[in-house]
Nucleic acid binder design. Structure first.
Lengths: 154, 154
DNA sequence: TGAACATACATGACACGTCATTGATTCCGC
DNA sequence: GCGGAATCAATGACGTGTCATGTATGTTCA
């Protein structure tokens, strides 16, 4: 193997800044959401998808693809949410292996209470700091990297 | 409270793309680093800082500020790394409350083995996908958000 | 039909992160 | 010095995420 290509100074600075921002932002969002509503970011994402689904229910594998989570993470997380009364599991008549995850009234109440505050926090901490051009660049940049991640493993 | 200001379409798309990219990238980096060297990203960051320190040792509070971690996260993590022989704890003569975290030979070997591969992965998955302008914008954007996070809590 | 394979989901073990609390020193004003 | 406050760090409890594996059901095709 050849000598590794290190990062240049611009890349170093960008990488460090990005890592810190990413960690700090998600920690801050999590803390606020948790304090305000008792939900984690993960709970929030699950509930958002269930809210958008017809009848407020989805198959686990649908949730898995929508969230882009590992299967076992989802399964564990749903068990914890079920224990807290945010969702329920139903049998699936059409497929004996499968199940439905159903939003409970408690779950719907939680997400409806949490959402406005959370969106406001995302705006204040993140979007209010950025120019429209920076937002556009962020989306393009993220999409490019995502395409690479979804592509070949090399 | 007033009606919440929701995100506009550009912001929605950027936010979703960013969240997915962020989650996917750190998962990919973690998986590769773990497979190649048995280190997690967290281990890697700790070891990098220790490697840069004189005598390969630092006080925990120095590491804490350098890494921007919560104190108890660091303490737990160092215990796990100590158990694996990557670092050791030493008493601090100058401050009876304190300690030193010292890089072991095992730890130094691990980071030196892991670093070239890891940097190369960061480059391939991330920087090779971006234009220099995107890199610059990412750094500016991250710095802006970070300043907001470090500022007032509102 | 039935064997091989694929799909849907759960689970146990264990690493990781946060919060709250505790214990031991050091610092500082009187 | 001495008493209170701040600092340095460890710990227990508990939620979260990953990996490896298990189990049941569905699907395909000779």
């Amino acid at each position: 193997m050849d000598a590794p290509r290190w990062l240049d100074d611009d890349q170093q600075r960008a990488w460090r800044a990005y890592l810190r921002m990413q960690a700090g932002l998600s920690a801050a969002l999590n803390r606020r959401l948790q304090a305000a509503s008792g939900l984690s970011l993960a709970d929030y994402d699950v509930l958002v998808h269930l809210t958008d689904a017809p009848d407020g229910r989805l198959r686990p594998y649908e949730l898995q693809h929508a969230l882009d989570w590992e299967q076992s993470r989802l399964s564990h997380h749903l068990s914890r949410m079920q224990r807290r009364g945010l969702v329920e599991r139903q049998e699936c008549a059409a497929d004996g292996r499968g199940a439905f995850i159903v939003l409970t009234e408690t779950g719907r109440g939680a997400i409806e209470t949490a959402a406005p505050d959370h969106v406001e926090t995302v705006r204040r901490l993140f979007f209010d700091q950025l120019t429209p051009e920076q937002v556009t660049t962020l989306e393009e940049l993220s999409t490019r990297v995502l395409a690479r991640l979804d592509g070949a493993d090399g």
